[in-house]
Design a protein around this nucleic acid. Sequence first.
DNA 1: AGCTACATTATAATTATTCTAAACTATTGA
DNA 2: TCAATAGTTTAGAATAATTATAATGTAGCT
Lengths: 142, 142
Amino acid sequence: MPKNCNFIEKLREVGLRPTKQRIKICEVLYNREKTFHFTVNDLVKMISEQMSQKISLATVYNTVHAFEKKGYLKEISIDSQKTYFDTNTSAHHHFFDEDTHELIDCDGSDIDKINIRKTITGKKINSIEVLVRIASDNQNQK
Amino acid sequence: MPKNCNFIEKLREVGLRPTKQRIKICEVLYNREKTFHFTVNDLVKMISEQMSQKISLATVYNTVHAFEKKGYLKEISIDSQKTYFDTNTSAHHHFFDEDTHELIDCDGSDIDKINIRKTITGKKINSIEVLVRIASDNQNQK
DNA sequence: AGCTACATTATAATTATTCTAAACTATTGA
DNA sequence: TCAATAGTTTAGAATAATTATAATGTAGCT
Ligand SMILES: [Mn+2]
Ligand SMILES: [Mn+2]
Ligand SMILES: [Zn+2]
Ligand SMILES: [Zn+2]
């Protein structure tokens, strides 16, 4: 979803009615320079900071899942406690900071193309994703 | 944890008292040819099938986490709903079958060593894991 | 045998997410 | 313009996985 796009039109195009809740969520998610990662809780907080009127939690869940289904969000499972969503819906790899629980995107030049030699009959590959877990390096504390 | 090992000794060695619950869980998890993946629910089912006396759910959770802490189990987050554990505690990659929700191990020859060119200052890499999502290939149904 | 720290257990609490069903609203077409 | 309709929002209940509590039990030591 491009920045400063006509969200009303965009939503209609994909068959979602442009309600004020959805438009607000679009603004919060997509009117920014860079893509980012968030939890539903993060999103609820961002919305409540920018709005007088609240959006109910059920609607936030509904909307996030509706956007996911339409391909405007990607769900990422890293941490068994939290479900992350990503406004970067392209295929890409991640660093996960185990100290801060922050996700960081890798771009194409960071990791070579992964070549899978194993095949499983009757099955096709949907995605190949690398997760690099990082944490603070305490070797420096001699 | 090797097959047919003396679990009582092994548990004592790492500072865990060899209770009958823990010994039973060791047998269920480690007395088999191959490593495998399971959820806590799976494990509870396996135990109840093989035992007259039940082990409480809290104990199963406690034990699984104790074993994880001691390095005899690995936790895997793939699916936001379920937490998987792996009796294969070495670094390895996975296929995840999105139809059956089954995890399949990759061995070293299946995927080349991953080279990470990106570095983040003050952070060290703890692990690099690839997840290959697969699903049934319906191209064949012409 | 008796002490003590560790473990087990039933049960309650917590948390994230989904469901329900009633109220609301965007869209359409008469 | 306006009512019909299907889609949407919402508060609150329900569900499910996991963790906390606190009482009871037990392994290991003397
Ligand atoms: Mn989902
Ligand atoms: Mn855990
Ligand atoms: Zn990302
Ligand atoms: Zn595995």
